[in-house]
């Protein structure tokens, strides 16, 4: 969407290692991306691809030990928050960066009413009086489409349905007008008809509030509907990045290409047989010395097994600005690759 806008958040060379008694797990390897003003960045990948760990590392939400964010920079408007003191970080989390988690059942506190939980960040971060915070909480619940908001402040999480709970989570995340909202699989636990309601709400909120959003999911359909740019992760690294239409129409990385082909379609010709990606995702016990996808890749050659490819831009735009891919193999021109 807003090309050339300044990045709100810039991540450079992020590395996270879990050091456990049974060995190290290199969950995030040299991940770089930027998030521009007003943009929605979709992050896709399978379980274990490092998408959630990347986002948790950004804002110091991983327990350490075992997690060790051992490299890189996370620049929030130019200031490295990896170097921030715990106190400074606390002023960032919940205030400047909001978070929505996957499971609205377990991320709300069952013993406090939702009013309390929405008002907590307002009182802590903004120092609002109780009366002012109550008014703002009513406003927020109305914003996320919860009817009868004033009365519902006194309700407890169990009195809401799954979709309504996720709306409450979004209200909490939005409470302090964050510059960045990170949503980790926010609709995965919901039914499709409820998911459609939440996606509609997010589109509305973007128009009204215009914050930058990072949306983590494994569902390429969801990304296609809402994202401006997409970041594809595999084996703890970014394998492809670019504007969502370009990546869907001319996917470059064999993993992205296979992933798009492996999903059965709802319309159009029905495939006789699904194209499966054989094999298993990698176990990241060591920092990768080769391409993590090579063992499952139909196009892999010797170099892929000896060297980890760096991301390179596939067009004239600077790395990270346009469409880039981490692969030695050259994808055929989009005409052939175009899928219906």
């Amino acid at each position: 969407m807003p090309d050339g806008a300044k990045p709100v958040l810039e991540v450079r060379g992020l590395k996270t290692v879990f050091r456990t008694r049974s060995g190290a797990v290199h969950a995030v390897n040299d991940v770089s991306f930027s998030l521009r003003e007003g943009e929605l960045l979709g992050v896709v990948g399978e379980s274990g691809s490092g998408k959630s760990v990347t986002m948790m590392s950004l804002i110091g939400l991983l327990p350490s030990p075992p997690a060790d964010v051992c490299g890189g920079q996370v620049l929030l408007r130019g200031v490295d928050i990896l170097k921030a003191t715990p106190d400074e970080l606390r002023r960032v989390r919940g205030a400047r960066i909001g978070f929505v988690f996957q499971d609205p059942m377990t991320s709300l506190n069952p013993v406090f009413n939702v009013g309390n939980q929405i008002m907590e960040p307002l009182r802590k971060h903004k120092g609002m009086s109780k009366a002012a915070a109550t008014e703002r909480a009513v406003e927020l619940l109305e914003l996320v489409g919860i009817p009868d908001a004033r009365r519902r402040l006194k309700s407890y999480p169990h009195q809401f349905s799954g979709g309504m709970r996720q709306r409450v989570m979004i209200a909490i995340a939005l409470a302090c007008d964050p510059e960045v909202l990170i949503a980790d699989e926010p609709t995965t636990a919901l039914d499709v008809t409820i998911q459609a309601q939440i996606l509609e709400l997010v589109k509305e909120l973007r128009q009204k509030l215009g914050m930058a959003i990072i949306w983590i999911t494994h569902d390429l359909g969801v990304i296609a509907g809402i994202a401006d740019r997409i970041l594809v992760m595999y084996g703890g690294q970014v394998v492809e990045q670019g504007p969502v239409r370009e990546v869907f129409h001319a996917p470059q990385h064999p993993y992205t290409r296979a992933l798009l082909r492996t999903i059965p379609k709802l319309h159009g010709a029905r495939e006789a047989r699904l194209e499966a990606i054989e094999g298993q995702p990698p176990i990241l016990t060591a920092a990768p010395a080769a391409c993590p996808f090579a063992p499952r890749c139909a196009h892999a050659f010797d170099r892929c097994r000896a060297e980890n490819p760096a991301r390179h831009s596939i067009d004239s735009r600077a790395l990270g600005e346009g469409h880039d891919v981490a692969c030695f193999w050259q994808a055929p021109a989009p005409q052939e690759a175009a899928h219906a």
Binding site: A196, Q197, A224, R245, F248, K265
Partner: peptide, 24 residues
């Protein structure tokens, strides 16, 4: 409504109009 709510991996916006069901 159920079929129209399924997000499709096609960002061109060609997907037919979604029917958003109200309530739970």
């Amino acid at each position: 409504a159920l079929l129209s709510a399924v997000p499709e991996p096609d960002p061109s916006g060609a997907q037919q109009q979604r029917i958003i069901l109200k309530g739970d």
